[in-house]
Design a binder for these strands. Sequence first.
DNA 1: TGTAATCGTTTACAGATGTCATCGGACCTG
DNA 2: CAGGTCCGATGACATCTGTAAACGATTACA
Lengths: 128, 128
Amino acid sequence: MPTPPALSDTEWDVMNVVWDRHPVTAADVIEALPNRSAQTVKTLLNRLLHKGALCYETEGKRYRYRPAVTRERCLRQASKSFITHVFSGDPGSLVSHLIEHHRLTEDDLAALRDQLDEAKKPGRKRRR
Amino acid sequence: MPTPPALSDTEWDVMNVVWDRHPVTAADVIEALPNRSAQTVKTLLNRLLHKGALCYETEGKRYRYRPAVTRERCLRQASKSFITHVFSGDPGSLVSHLIEHHRLTEDDLAALRDQLDEAKKPGRKRRR
DNA sequence: TGTAATCGTTTACAGATGTCATCGGACCTG
DNA sequence: CAGGTCCGATGACATCTGTAAACGATTACA
């Protein structure tokens, strides 16, 4: 279980498209990211291939890209790094900050309440 | 209200020290960050000065650094960017991810529950 | 059939990042 | 006073990022 490759902001944008709709062609990703030029997206796909975040099968001359790493693992990695540097390693203060400063919907809040109750249950296994 | 300067991971490490104990000398920061070489820390302090994140007063030949931007503003900025790219703009799913995958203490959970209750109060003003 | 549109690949490039070495001046110490 | 020390400033440098042009092969259309 090697560490998943670190992703830059724009690489996350690309990977999110791939995770959401794989398999995808370059054209699909380009269409999904109207803010970046087609060339830029192509470069990013290529870099992600080389850093092992993507894989592909050939379909005619096109590629059909797929994730080569799970979103889950990348999210953990990124969140951990973010918390370490930005929130001095304290996940609690990040959550707190989010609830205070980033508008959550009523549904979000309700879901979180449920999740907290769940997390509270005694005897629940905590992952290390 | 100009946008606060973007901070890199190592710059956050430095800024957190400054926010926690300002005013600080370079030596203070170097001591607080044993993982980086003294030279590296000095370079970071210099860059942070030039990008307007720090200011200082002279004390003899030393500098006494202070934050030139609030941690609050920088945190918002960084969290927003992180959510946008890594969590596709959905703060709720970040909070959810944190509760699931990043161990929070019982105190954290209790505090969050209180915070949620607070956030739930009807008629509470939501920021834009 | 030749020409334009597609694709992935390669090359480019400026700016950011992380890490340090070196430099010139002030200071202290013997 | 001379040599070492400490300080901030400056120079270096490899790598990463974001953005995109140029290239060669292939396909599709006129």
